[in-house]
Nucleic acid binder design. Structure first.
Length: 354
DNA sequence: AATACGTGGCT
DNA sequence: TAGCCAAGTAT
């Protein structure tokens, strides 16, 4: 492969244009040997999995304020961590966050391991996150491959094999370009590039430090790459949730099983969501009022239309399922978004998808 | 290897 | 606006 782009050119761009983030060390500090806190890098990288920087910021501040160190997080109540994660999505990440923090405390004396292999053996840390932590927090020369890197490589090398088939080839390209020195800054530089200039829809090639070396730009096909195999259409599933409020204001909620959709999160009792749902007994025997409208929500692999029923129940009411959560303790913000939407609908708040 | 797993923003 | 997309991992 001739005329490869130079990592030094990208690093020079990064030194001037690095985006500020609460978990980041500025390039000038990184150059002088100041390293980011592995705990904060790990936490941010897990939060950033399939999630935008903009969405992560507030959660990161909240988590590091509540739990400044991995020991603090490991000692936290599961329910508090799940509630703090509510709204961020992919809840297995929060469950694995707890498992990982406890493993770091129990097996590594509260000190994050620095090698890629050790990191990847921890819950919730895969090939991308292990390489990101090892390079960014520990200055190891690991090859970091995420969606940004794949897109940038596909364009630089005008590689038109569709994803995911192209993954091995794109990783090989990334390996060729990754420098031994400042690998962490380089990784963050490619990701910044992908998030700003080399964006998915309308890449802004003029200011890119690698334009001249970019084969896709030369061919005028940057915006067409990477190719992707078409996705399957999402089916629509239907369901019903039951919102019961006791006379004293307490709400009837249920903790969902650890496995599966919204696993480990609090939610309203209801039936199983499917294309052809079966009826289920309401969680309390009482007079239920079906609400007008419905909650519309789209998950990764299906659309959901959710009917909502509400009831007021007396103090002595005994639920068949779930537990009453005190009005003083309850916060709709501790619910996953789809459940919060149902609450909002019951409160008469306007739901744009209803 | 293919599928399950959230959400909000952008076009 | 309906679909696409984001710093992936687990199974």
């Amino acid at each position: 492969m001739r005329d490869l782009p130079k990592s030094a050119d990208l690093l020079a761009w990064y030194d001037l244009n690095a985006r500020e983030m609460p978990w980041r060390v500025a390039p000038k500090d990184s150059i002088t040997g100041i390293r980011a806190d592995p705990y904060r890098i790990w936490l941010s990288e897990v939060m950033l999995q399939q999630t935008t920087v903009a969405a992560v910021q507030a959660y990161f501040i909240k988590f590091t304020t509540l739990w400044p160190t991995v020991r603090d997080l490991a000692a936290a109540e599961d329910a508090d961590v799940m509630a703090a994660w509510a709204g961020l999505g992919y809840y297995a990440r929060a469950r694995n966050l707890l498992k990982c923090s406890r493993s770091v405390v129990a097996d590594y004396n509260g000190i994050f391991p620095s090698t890629r292999a050790e990191l990847e053996s921890l819950p919730g840390i895969g090939p991308y996150t292990s390489a990101a932590i090892a390079s960014i927090a520990f200055d190891r020369a690991e090859v970091v491959v995420d969606g940004n890197v794949e897109r940038v490589m596909a364009r630089i090398f005008a590689h038109d094999v569709p994803l995911p088939e192209a993954k091995p080839a794109l990783r090989d390209f990334a390996t060729k370009l990754t420098p031994k020195k400042r690998a962490g800054d380089y990784a963050q530089a490619v990701m910044d590039l992908g998030a700003t200039l080399c964006s998915p829809r309308n890449p802004t090639c003029a200011p890119c430090p690698w334009t001249e070396k970019c084969r896709a730009h030369k061919l005028g096909i940057a915006a067409e790459l990477p190719k992707k195999t078409p996705k399957k259409p999402k089916p629509t599933r239907f369901g019903t949730v039951y919102l019961a409020q006791r006379e004293d204001g307490a709400w009837l909620l249920e903790q969902r099983p650890d496995k599966g959709l919204l696993g480990g999160m609090l939610g309203w009792p209801g039936n199983e969501w499917s294309e052809d749902p079966e009826n289920v007994d309401p969680p309390i025997s009482t007079f239920w009022t079906p609400l007008n409208g419905e909650v519309g929500h789209t998950f990764t692999h299906f659309h959901l239309k959710l009917a909502v029923q509400v009831a007021q129940v007396p103090l002595e009411a005994a639920p068949l399922r779930g537990v009453f959560v005190d009005a003083s303790t309850f916060s709709a913000n501790a619910l996953p978004t789809v459940m919060r939407k149902a609450f909002d609908l019951a409160q008469g708040l306007r739901d744009k998808t209803a």
